[in-house]
Amino acid sequence: MAKKSTTAKSKTKYSKETYAYWYESMLLMRRFEEKAGQLYGQQKIRGFCHLYIGQEACASGAITALTPDDKWITAYRDHAHPLGLGTDPGAVMAELYGKATGTTKGKGGSMHIFDKEKNFMGGHGIVGAQVPMGLGIGFAEKYQGTKNLCICYMGDGAVRQGAVHEAFNLAMLYKVPVIFVIENNGYAMGTSVKRSSNVEELYTIGEAYDMPSFAVDGMNVEAVHEAVAEAAERARAGEGPTLLEFRTYRYKGHSMSDPQKYRTREEVEEYKQRDPIEQVKATILENGLMTEEEIKEIDKRVKKQVEDAVKFAEESPWPDGQDAFKDVYQQEDYPFVME
């Protein structure tokens, strides 16, 4: 998707379009979720709501490194990936509201966004469970002889789940085209990596399985793109999986009810100095890829998209309660126990 810069004079590695995409997609993720946070406070959004704010480069940089036929899976911090892939923000917002027009018709909610059209395969609620599934998704690509791969995200908390280790081993045994990504934001809910893993350099866990494993600056979208592009090359060449540890940070709490007593304000501020969106914006302006005016145009467009998404969600109907019986089975006439 990303094009290398073609003008010899340019000092940037990638084309203007690529930087523009990175800026706009990350800004959309950011503004969308800032709005979602507000709406949660107003109780428009219920249940659990995990925000990705600060981590946007981990999704955007990977999207430009892959093709539209590649498959995506992640855990429950899952609004940003589909937004970056092009899922209608209105449908994602409507899902957060629980409306019938949501990505899964109000069945999944915040933690279970799915968009088959964009090959976004969830949105999974059990920490680490998406990792064997991601392995299986990649396995199916290899089985069917395609050149596609699966990129499978997990948080640093997931790395201590047994499922992840079983999946790493199986992925190496069967040489499955999958890119495992640890979004290491430092904390599994309120428990720091230090307090929960004897191995703090999480990427080295992959080395136990002889898996090519790398740590990547997850606040830098170019670095993310490069690491994923390299891993994708290996996967498509039949060389199997790669483990990438994106070192990133979430500015907000684990979920909406997190008092964040486990970290300092200074730590949060330190990461904000390396904000992925600000970094891309600086690159764009410093290299004259776009003018301030063009940036403002994007800001305006994103603002409008988020407003439209909220309006769409607000105006959408609730699902019919009786539709609870739909999509439980593919079998049309499944005889549910009714009392």
Binding site: K71, I73, M121, A129, V131, P132, M133, G134, L135, G136, I137, G138, F139, A140, E141, Y143, Q144, C150, G162, A163, E166, A167, N169, L170, L173, Y174
Partner: peptide
């Protein structure tokens, strides 16, 4: 396919494969 003794891993592999077009 023979698997290692990793029921959680290969059961999950099966689910992912089934989501992506196979019938494990």
């Amino acid at each position: 396919y023979d698997t290692p003794i990793a029921e959680l891993g290969f059961a999950g592999l099966g689910v992912g494969a089934a989501m992506n077009g196979l019938r494990p």
